[in-house]
Each structure stands twice: as structure tokens, then as C-alpha cells.
Simulated scan of single mutants.
Amino acid sequence: MSKSVFTVHRRTQADRSAVTRKKIIEATVLLLQTQGYAATTLQRIAKTAGVSLGALQHHYPTKAQVMAMVLRHYALRRAQLYRLAMRGRTLPEQRVEAMLDAMWSLVSEGPDFVATVEIELARRSDPELAAATEPVLARIDQFMAGWLSGTRNGLPEQKFMTLRLLNTTFLRGMAVEISRGVSLDELAEAYALWRHFSRSEIMKIVHQMS
């Protein structure tokens, strides 16, 4: 008679820490979207995440550090989404269209983008937050400019930098409209118009450089 062998997999400390950080990030994003930056305190984050305040502060001692981590989390998600969108697309037209579709997904699917806008707006009156998040935002801007221009190394053309700023400004405006309760159907129509304009301008620059 054979005996069944059960293997017990115990989570390591690293596993438990990763789970805790994930809960904290998700709770912070939810609170930023629904309550705003001022109301997203460490105490509320801990309660929403289902962790103790001590456990939260073990990973992120200050609110500013929590917010910097949320921005990093969003940046990684954005990079992954763009890489998946670009996979197998070699023609400039295909890459531009895939990128613009990915932008809409970022704004319309989930609370992450709205949360990042809340953080960015709060930076103007919070020096500690501004200092903690500046390096992350600089990398996001560099990443966006690189994807727009197709230049992964070095500084992109100024025209691409200007167009990146226009795209980012438009997307942030969309996030504000979502926060105001404007329906995604209405916003999708507005984005379709913007997408047509942005695609046209990007392709003009691409053709001028070729």
C-alpha cells in the first residue's frame, strides 16, 4: 500500500514581503482614485491593504516613498504593455498605431493612470513628494520619448519631444475627465480624433527623417 506524499511549500520572507508590497500598492492606487491624494494617508493605506501600519512603514517609511513606488509600478506596467504592443511590428505605421492603441489602454483600463495624475498634481505643494518622485518621472518621460521616436539610446529629435509632451498632456487631461465621471464612450470618441492627429504628425516626422 503506497503512501501519498505531500510537499509543503512554505513561503519565504521574500515572498511574504512581495505580497505585502503588492497589497500596499493596490490599496494606494484605489485610494488615490477614489479619495484623492490628501485623503490617502499611511493609516488608510494600511487599513485598506489589510496590513499593520508597522508593516507598511517597514517597506515604505514615508508617504512620499509609497507614492514613488506607485509611479515605479505604473512605469513598469506601461513598459510591459508597450513591449507587448510592439512585438512583431516592424513597419513604422504598425508601430505607431500599436503605441497609440496602448496609450488608450493605459488610460481606460484600471485606476493606475488616474492615481499617477493625483500624485503628479500633489507634487507642486509637497517638496518631499517632489524630491522622491522626480527620478521616476524623469525616467518615464525618457521612456515615452524613446518609444515615440523609436530611439532607445540617446536623445530623440526635438520634434518627438514636443509631440511626447502633447500626448502626455492629452492623456493626463483624459484622466481628469474620467475622474469627473465622463463616460468612456465619450472619451473614446475624443481619443479617436486625437489618435488620428497624433498618428499623422508622428508619421510626418518619421518620413522626414527617412
Rank of each mutant, 00 (worst) to 15 (best):
L163E: 06
S149R: 01
A39F: 02
I24H: 08
M86G: 11
G36K: 14
G150P: 08
N153S: 13
D112F: 03
Q13W: 04
G181V: 03
L81I: 05
R172K: 15
S210A: 11
L187R: 09
K159T: 13
M174C: 09
G110N: 06
S108G: 10
K159Y: 08
A138N: 07
R83S: 10
T169P: 09
L106C: 12
M1L: 13
A38I: 03
H73F: 07
A55H: 00
N167G: 12
S210M: 10
D126T: 01
S17C: 04
Q208S: 13
P61F: 02
K22R: 11
F170I: 03
A122K: 09
G36F: 09
E189N: 12
A98N: 01
Q43P: 00
R11F: 05
E93L: 03
P127K: 05
A14R: 15
R180E: 14
L81Y: 02
Y82N: 09
A115Q: 00
A75V: 05
E26A: 15
A192N: 08
R152N: 07
E189C: 06
R123Y: 05
S149F: 08
E128Q: 06
L81A: 12
R180K: 15
L56V: 07
P61E: 06
A68H: 02
T133A: 07
G36P: 05
T7P: 00
M161P: 05
I25T: 13
R44M: 15
M1Q: 14
